[in-house]
Amino acid sequence: MFEARLLQGSLLKKVMEALKELLNEAAWDCSDAGIQLQAMDNSHVSLVSLNLRAEGFDKYRCDRNLSMGMNLGSMSKILKCASNEDIITIKAQDNADTVTFVFESPDQDKVSDYEMKLMNLDQEHLGIPETDYACTIRLPSSEFARICRDLSQFGESMVISCTKEGVRFSATGDIGTGNIKLAQSAKVDKEEEAVVIEMQEPVSLTFACRYLNSFTKATSLSKSVQLSMSPEVPLVVEYKIEDIGHVRYYLAPKIED
């Protein structure tokens, strides 16, 4: 028996938005520690890793580990039937071929349930290596979304260069060039509005704007986002999900032939 009840159901709706542009289907791996999802996008240059800890749920029960293959388009349709205020419960029997989503209104006067067929996904389990990054940059998530959107107009790819002084985002294309420089915040009233840079060595890498824009679909999950970069390894874009977990996106830098 698996059962996970989330008082703040809107978080699951937001998680869905953060996943569905990159992934058509994915396995939700449930254990007594919580729910994990890890999948490469179709083109195999980005990876999405979601972690929702058991303690973050109002009620969580997982008698035995299970991996639920879900079509994310179908799951998204179902979650659209939940109101933002609803409490959402995900339920499945052991070895079941369906999963049930239950939506309760806050005053319990409306309860809906939707059963969805599970899929058999033949998925590879990838490990994520512990990595020391040369630069980590924390900035407001809305600022990052704005930068990705603005620079996408100039070209298909964007250079992110990080030095002690700050971080520069640049894109070049037919119409010209765009550069956005963010300095490290001197002092801030609210931590989530800060730009904070930790740097071992300067790094400059090029990334496809299309993927960065897809990652920013997670913006509503967190006020700030963290970018981690090192030469020759994938970029990590991390959004924390309140007290419950995180979604991390990995993206290979563009490599010149």
Binding site: H44, V45, L47, L126, G127, I128, Y250, A252, P253, D257
Partner: peptide, 14 residues
């Protein structure tokens, strides 16, 4: 592509 190879190499390191 070389990007795909980098992803495979990175995630196999774990």
């Amino acid at each position: 592509s070389r990007e795909q190879m980098m992803m495979d190499r990175f995630f196999q390191m774990a």
